[in-house]
Design a protein around this nucleic acid. Structure first.
Length: 731
DNA sequence: AAGATAGTCGTTTTT
DNA sequence: CGACTATCTT
């Protein structure tokens, strides 16, 4: 075989996949089997060994993060930037195509991307226009319906209602929604894919051009493709392209949002001469962990059949801990983490994984109590924040006045005396005239179709946006953003907000200006602002502050896919929670839960703890759950049950039961006596400004009380938020 | 137009 | 239970 450096350090299966001749290939890559490595090496192989131009290669991923990582690793391996190669998400690439061929796609050149929040608002407006009662026709449901249809590649005309009136109404909403989008030049996420697909179908010459250009396409996480993504690829590939589909049917966990695990099998039928390679050697986990994972996933039917193996040691057994309740579970986890830390290891080696976000609070509190730094993944992203979305809406309006979503968002933000009535009037007029709200507002101001007061308020809004646009003319992106947050009064608006919130919002707005300053444009053809806004919609900005602090990682099992950690805690592994009760009925759903469990187990490199709570407070009432069926699927010999040592297992301090003096006192202390809460923490005996000592952070001064948290400015470690229950000694 | 209050609902999430 | 929303009140 070839002794190229690109094949060095690859096992036979990996090398086979990397050096395969041109043609379609399916790479079934088990967890921890070096999937990304194979993908990146395959690209390097094509470029260096086969002398394929980077221009001829397209690599598709699902997340921006994955796309960035791939690009980075190719660059690292090749020692140069593979210019001309297309690497991106399905949505990002579709967007790129639509931008380049906007006329063929029947879109305005400056079309805007509608995110799910805008989409929901728009659906609500459609409901109003169609006089559909929110009660019977929840916008959320219609939104889900529309997105689902688009994922399946269906336009309203192609949906079979079979006379079902409910379905017919939803189709009506879908149709009206589409018209509104087209009128406003707005494209939602599903539409990007659908349009890009139609772009191929309607423009054979264009398709031929791209088919010629991209004889090599690589797709990551193939098991996550949905119907429209698959169709898009299928058409683009034609019958001459070499597709490398990389995926793992056992890690398909997004069926609930339209991913079709069957696409993997379908691939071998639809594409000719598919060579299948299985990567079954795992380089990540100990044998015990891997065997546990294998034992669980074996219970699924219809697998493509892969069994991971490792050359590594058995390692520790999987520890199973039965917590008395969720507090006890959290306490156990934090103790183990502190143990790890005492051995001089990194906190960042530890991950706590859970099924649902609601579980994070208890864990967070336990970590806070012990002052263990942590970082939660997921949650609200930067560009989803209210204040940021408002600022972006102004910027969007400067580029496209017909963007109704943006118009509605900021016409009265900050408040400028335009009430609901006025907005209703504008909306109605726009609907009657079949024009955008901006145009309607303009006409109404001119024709004096508004009360004098409302008229002048609306006019000043119109002038504000026009002014922003004019002044943006030859300013840098940073200056435009800076001007926008100031001239619109958004900064002022949030400064006046009381509490921490306003402060944080002002900071976020400044951060937005900062983001504009560091934004690097890539496309000469379109304005930097347009490019920035598109980027904001397509990549919600995952990077977070405090990224460099050594901290325990908390996230859902879903967001853990693709990651690995030396120590993993799976929390709440109970029937009803994991597998979730919502997935209990359908067998398909249950198998997906099992795959999720498989994903969780295989995140662990050295040590896996599985935890559950015998009793757990859910929705206010106490529930008693059994240990998850998945735990029972793991052979006993791989598990070691952790015995409760001399711990506080009495439920006294955890509510429930009776005679809970501490709790009733809190309620009395914090309830009626108005004013007290603002300058002290209830019955804790702590006051604002008081000097206290914390066992890890040392001495500090109390700055704030908010809810169940205390903010303290520590001499040595700076300002921190702690949970009220934390031990603090007055100094 | 802010603030209070009643009512609802309760997986997973990227783009 | 508690976060979030929709609606009502001043």
């Amino acid at each position: 075989m070839n002794n190229s450096p690109i094949l060095q350090d690859l096992n036979p299966a990996q090398a086979e996949a990397v050096s395969a001749p041109a043609g379609n290939q399916l790479i079934l890559a088990g967890a921890g089997s070096g999937k990304t490595r194979v993908l990146v090496h395959r690209i390097a192989w094509l470029i260096q060994q086969q002398r394929i131009s980077p221009y001829a290669i397209m690599a598709v991923t699902f997340t921006n993060k994955a796309a960035r990582e791939m690009r980075g690793r190719i660059e690292e391996l090749l020692g140069l930037n593979p210019r001309g190669m297309w690497v991106g998400t399905f949505h990002g690439l579709a967007h790129r195509l639509l931008k380049a061929h906007w006329q063929d796609a029947k879109l305005p050149q400056n079309f805007q991307i509608l995110d799910s929040d805008d989409q929901l608002r728009l659906v609500k407006r459609i409901n109003l226009a169609l006089q559909l009662d929110e009660e019977r026709w929840p916008a959320k449901q219609s939104q889900w319906f529309i997105n689902h249809q688009k994922d399946e590649g269906l336009r309203p005309d192609y949906i079979q209602s079979h006379g079902d009136p409910h379905q017919e109404t939803l189709v009506r909403v879908y149709r009206a929604y589409e018209e509104a989008c087209q009128r406003g030049g707005m494209v939602d996420f599903g539409e990007l894919l659908l349009r890009a697909h139609e772009l191929w179908l309607n423009n054979p010459l264009l398709l031929a051009h791209y088919q010629e250009r991209f004889p090599f396409i690589l797709v990551d996480e193939f098991q996550d493709t949905n119907t429209i993504q698959y169709a898009w690829l299928r058409v683009l590939a034609g019958d001459k392209c070499s597709i490398s589909a990389v995926g793992d049917d056992d890690q398909s966990i997004y069926g609930w949002r339209g991913a079709k695990i069957e696409n993997i099998q379908r691939f071998t039928l639809d594409f000719k001469d598919v060579q299948t390679v299985k990567l079954e050697q795992n380089y990540r986990s100990t044998a015990n962990i891997l065997n546990a994972a294998n034992a669980v996933i074996e219970n699924n039917s219809g697998r493509l059949g892969k069994t991971l193996h490792t050359d590594g040691d058995d390692g520790d057994k999987v520890s199973l801990y039965a917590g008395f309740n969720e507090q006890d579970e959290a306490r156990f986890i934090v103790e183990r983490i502190e143990e790890w830390q005492r051995k001089g290891k990194f906190l960042g080696d530890c991950a706590i994984l859970y099924r649902s976000n609601a579980q994070s609070r208890i864990l967070e509190e336990a970590l806070l109590r012990e002052a263990v730094p942590y970082r939660i993944y997921g949650g609200q992203r930067f560009y989803e924040r209210l204040e940021i979305r408002n600022a972006l809406a102004y910027l969007r309006l400067t580029l496209n006045r017909d963007d109704d979503a943006a118009f509605e968002r900021v016409i009265n933000t900050p408040t400028r005396g335009i009430g609901g009535k006025t907005v209703d009037g504008i909306r109605l007029f726009a609907r009657e005239q079949g024009c955008s709200m901006w145009q309607a507002a303009q006409a109404m101001v001119e024709n004096k179709g508004l009360t004098p007061r409302a008229g002048s308020a609306v006019d000043s809004f119109l002038q504000l946006v026009n002014g922003l646009d004019e002044q943006s003319e030859d300013l840098s992106l940073e200056r435009i953003a800076d001007m926008a947050i100031k001239a619109t009064g958004l900064i002022e608006f949030h400064e006046k907000e009381k509490g921490e919130k306003g402060q944080a919002r002002v900071e976020n707005l400044q951060e937005l200006v900062n983001a504009c300053r560091t934004f690097v444009t890539a496309d000469e053809e379109i304005s930097p602002l347009q490019e920035f806004l598109d980027g904001a919609a397509l990549d919600a900005g995952e990077s977070q502050a405090d990224e460099f602090e050594d901290a325990v990682q908390l996230m859902t099992l879903h967001s853990a896919k693709g990651l690995e950690f030396p120590v993993v805690f799976m929390a709440g592994v109970e029937e009803g929670l994991f597998p979730h009760r919502m997935s209990a009925e359908e067998p398909g759903r249950m198998e997906e839960e099992r795959r999720l469990c498989y994903v969780g187990i295989t995140r662990a490199m050295q040590k896996l703890y599985i935890c559950y709570a015998e009793s757990r407070r859910m929705y206010g009432s106490e529930t008693f759950n059994k240990v998850s069926r998945f735990v029972k699927e793991i052979p006993d010999k791989l598990i070691e049950e952790v015995r409760i040592k001399s711990t506080i297992s009495r439920p006294v301090s955890y509510g429930g039961g009776y005679g809970n003096a501490a709790q009733s006192r809190t309620r009395l202390g914090g309830g009626k006596v108005a004013g007290r809460l603002s300058d002290d923490g209830g019955d804790t005996g702590l006051r604002l400004g008081q000097r206290v000592r914390h066992k890890k952070f040392g001495e500090g001064t109390i700055l704030h009380f908010e809810g169940n948290k205390i903010q303290i400015n520590f001499e040595e470690v700076g300002t921190k938020w702690l949970i009220s229950g934390v031990k603090l000694d007055p100094v």
